[in-house]
Amino acid sequence: MAQSYGKQTEKVTFNISVELKERLLALKNELHVSLSSLYNEAITKYLREKELEKWEKGVSMALKDSEYKALNKELGADGGSLHEY
């Protein structure tokens, strides 16, 4: 589970419920890792999920856009051949 998050780090303070902190401590002890690594992994995963949600929303919006769909159809009508520019 260890992961490198770069050389520059910054200390961050935030509030967390007692119940959630107890669950994290239990997981930390079970996995033999630091709380910091658990926090970093969770935040990294959360950011990846949110970025994916933004891309999915963009695709959904594009597929509802009739001008985009027409341009996509026009640009894709080349028979799939490769062109050298």
Rank of each mutant, 00 (worst) to 15 (best):
residue 71 L to C: 11
residue 55 W to N: 11
residue 51 E to V: 08
residue 24 L to C: 13
residue 57 K to V: 00
residue 22 E to G: 03
residue 67 E to F: 03
residue 34 S to Q: 03
residue 69 K to Q: 09
residue 17 S to L: 04
residue 42 A to R: 12
residue 58 G to W: 10
residue 18 V to N: 15
residue 75 L to C: 07
residue 18 V to W: 10
residue 80 G to N: 09
residue 74 E to H: 07
residue 57 K to H: 05
residue 57 K to M: 07
residue 30 E to L: 04
residue 28 K to R: 10
residue 73 K to I: 03
residue 61 M to E: 12
residue 25 L to C: 00
residue 83 H to Y: 15
residue 34 S to P: 01
residue 77 A to H: 03
residue 44 T to W: 09
residue 65 D to W: 01
residue 63 L to I: 14
residue 5 Y to H: 11
residue 40 N to C: 02
residue 85 Y to G: 13
residue 51 E to T: 15
residue 64 K to Y: 01
residue 67 E to W: 05
residue 22 E to P: 01
residue 68 Y to K: 05
residue 33 V to R: 12
residue 73 K to P: 01
residue 25 L to Q: 07
residue 46 Y to A: 15
residue 57 K to I: 00
residue 69 K to N: 08
residue 84 E to D: 15
residue 17 S to R: 03
residue 73 K to C: 04
residue 67 E to M: 05
residue 3 Q to I: 00
residue 17 S to K: 04
residue 80 G to C: 11
residue 81 S to L: 12
residue 14 F to T: 06
residue 5 Y to S: 11
residue 9 T to M: 09
residue 25 L to F: 00
residue 55 W to H: 13
residue 49 E to A: 10
residue 62 A to T: 14
residue 61 M to A: 10
residue 62 A to R: 15
residue 59 V to L: 07
residue 55 W to R: 14
residue 21 K to D: 09
residue 45 K to L: 02
residue 18 V to I: 12
residue 50 K to H: 03
residue 71 L to G: 07
residue 45 K to D: 08
residue 22 E to W: 02
residue 45 K to T: 10
residue 27 L to H: 10
residue 85 Y to T: 04
residue 36 S to H: 01
residue 16 I to L: 15
residue 41 E to N: 09
residue 15 N to H: 07
residue 2 A to C: 03
residue 76 G to H: 05
residue 31 L to Q: 13
residue 67 E to V: 08
residue 60 S to V: 05
residue 25 L to H: 01
residue 2 A to R: 11
residue 68 Y to E: 08
residue 28 K to H: 02
residue 76 G to T: 09
residue 41 E to I: 01
residue 37 S to R: 06
residue 23 R to Q: 13
residue 39 Y to K: 12
residue 21 K to G: 02
residue 53 E to I: 05
residue 55 W to Y: 14
residue 6 G to E: 13
residue 28 K to L: 05
residue 38 L to E: 03
residue 27 L to R: 13
residue 68 Y to L: 00
residue 45 K to Q: 06
residue 53 E to H: 09
residue 2 A to H: 09
residue 20 L to H: 01
residue 62 A to F: 14
residue 54 K to D: 03
residue 71 L to M: 14
residue 67 E to N: 10
residue 77 A to L: 07
residue 54 K to T: 02
residue 31 L to I: 06
residue 74 E to C: 02
residue 9 T to Q: 05
residue 27 L to Y: 13
residue 40 N to W: 01
residue 53 E to T: 06
residue 4 S to F: 09
residue 28 K to V: 03
residue 35 L to H: 03
residue 66 S to L: 06
residue 47 L to R: 07
residue 55 W to D: 13
residue 63 L to S: 10
residue 26 A to V: 06
residue 10 E to H: 02
residue 61 M to F: 04
residue 37 S to F: 00
residue 61 M to T: 07
residue 73 K to T: 08
residue 44 T to C: 07
residue 62 A to S: 14
residue 36 S to C: 02
residue 29 N to R: 11
residue 66 S to C: 03
residue 72 N to R: 12
residue 49 E to D: 13
residue 32 H to V: 09
residue 50 K to V: 05
residue 85 Y to K: 08
residue 38 L to D: 02
residue 21 K to M: 08
residue 35 L to W: 02
residue 84 E to K: 15
